[in-house]
Computed example of a mutant assay.
Amino acid sequence: MLGTGIYSPADAAALLKTPPDEVRRWAFGYSRLRQGATVAYEPLIRTELPEREGQRALTFVELVELMFIKGFRRAGAPWKLIHEAAEVAARILDTDHPFAMRTFFADPEGIYALMDEGEGRESLVRLVGHGQHAFAPIVQPYLGQLEFDPRELPTRWWPMGREARVVVDPAVSFGAPVLADVGIPTRTLADVYEAERGYAGDDAFRRVSWLYKVPERQVQLAVEFERWRRAA
Rank of each mutant, 00 (worst) to 15 (best):
M1K: 02
M1L: 05
L2I: 04
T4H: 04
I6M: 11
Y7A: 12
S8P: 04
A10E: 11
A12L: 05
A13N: 06
A13F: 13
L16V: 06
T18Q: 09
T18A: 10
P19E: 09
P20K: 10
P20A: 12
D21G: 10
G29R: 07
L33R: 11
Q35E: 11
A37P: 01
A37I: 09
P43F: 15
I45H: 01
T47M: 03
P50S: 07
P50L: 14
P50V: 13
E53H: 04
G54E: 02
Q55H: 12
A57H: 12
F60Y: 14
F60G: 01
E62Q: 15
E65I: 00
E65D: 08
M67Q: 13
M67H: 15
M67C: 05
F72W: 15
R73P: 01
R74D: 03
A75D: 09
G76Q: 11
A77Y: 01
W79S: 01
L81T: 14
I82M: 15
A86L: 01
A89P: 05
A90I: 02
L93W: 03
D94L: 03
D96F: 06
H97M: 01
R102V: 00
T103H: 15
F104K: 00
A106W: 00
A113C: 11
M115W: 02
G118F: 10
R121Q: 12
R121Y: 05
E122C: 09
L124E: 06
L124S: 12
H130A: 15
G131P: 06
G131Y: 14
Q132R: 12
Q132D: 08
A134Q: 02
F135I: 03
A136K: 05
V139D: 10
Q140L: 11
Q140A: 11
L143E: 02
G144A: 06
E147P: 02
F148K: 00
T155W: 00
W157H: 09
W157Q: 04
W158Q: 07
M160N: 11
M160K: 11
M160I: 02
E163W: 06
E163D: 14
R165E: 13
R165W: 03
V167W: 13
V168Q: 13
D169N: 14
A171I: 02
V172C: 13
S173I: 03
F174Y: 09
V178G: 12
L179R: 10
I184R: 08
P185T: 05
P185G: 09
R187L: 13
R187Q: 09
Y193I: 11
E194K: 03
E196G: 06
G198L: 14
Y199R: 12
A200F: 04
R206I: 04
W210K: 10
W210Q: 15
W210A: 15
L211F: 08
Y212S: 13
Y212A: 13
Y212P: 11
V214M: 09
P215T: 03
R217H: 06
V219C: 08
V223Q: 01
V223E: 10
E224F: 05
E224L: 10
F225C: 07
E226T: 08
R227E: 14
W228N: 06
W228A: 10
A231M: 11
